[in-house]
Design a protein around this nucleic acid. Structure first.
Length: 89
DNA sequence: GCGCTGACTGTCA
DNA sequence: ATGACAGCCAGCG
């Protein structure tokens, strides 16, 4: 499947995100090679979560955190703020 | 191989 | 500004 490399690419991109820095799903998708595949990106995180990937650094384009398979938005926000990122609310 | 679902995004009302 | 609808891609049954 073509998504095989895509999912790998997404993971690679997210893994490169530095502390205190966040990327929107669309940004990740774009860096992954498919700016329109933001859906697939979310799917990759949702179904294929990896402990090596800081999925919590991936947020929505609206500035919202979205969901998180590790404890929900609350946990996600806690992690981001702990790393130095504060959302606009 | 076809169809549905999903941690989304963008536009219309 | 908020709510709802439609569109997009990849993965799994």
């Amino acid at each position: 499947m073509a998504g095989r490399k895509f999912s790998h690419r997404v993971k690679n991109v997210v893994r490169q995100i530095e502390v205190g820095h966040v990327l929107s799903y669309k940004e990740v998708a774009k860096l992954a090679g498919n700016p329109k595949a933001y859906r697939a990106v979310a799917n990759v995180m949702a179904n294929n979560f990896d402990p090596n990937i800081p999925c919590h650094r991936v947020i929505r384009s609206d500035g919202q955190l979205g969901d998180y398979n590790r404890g929900g938005e609350d946990k996600k926000r806690a992690l981001l703020e702990s790393e130095g990122y504060t959302m606009k609310t």
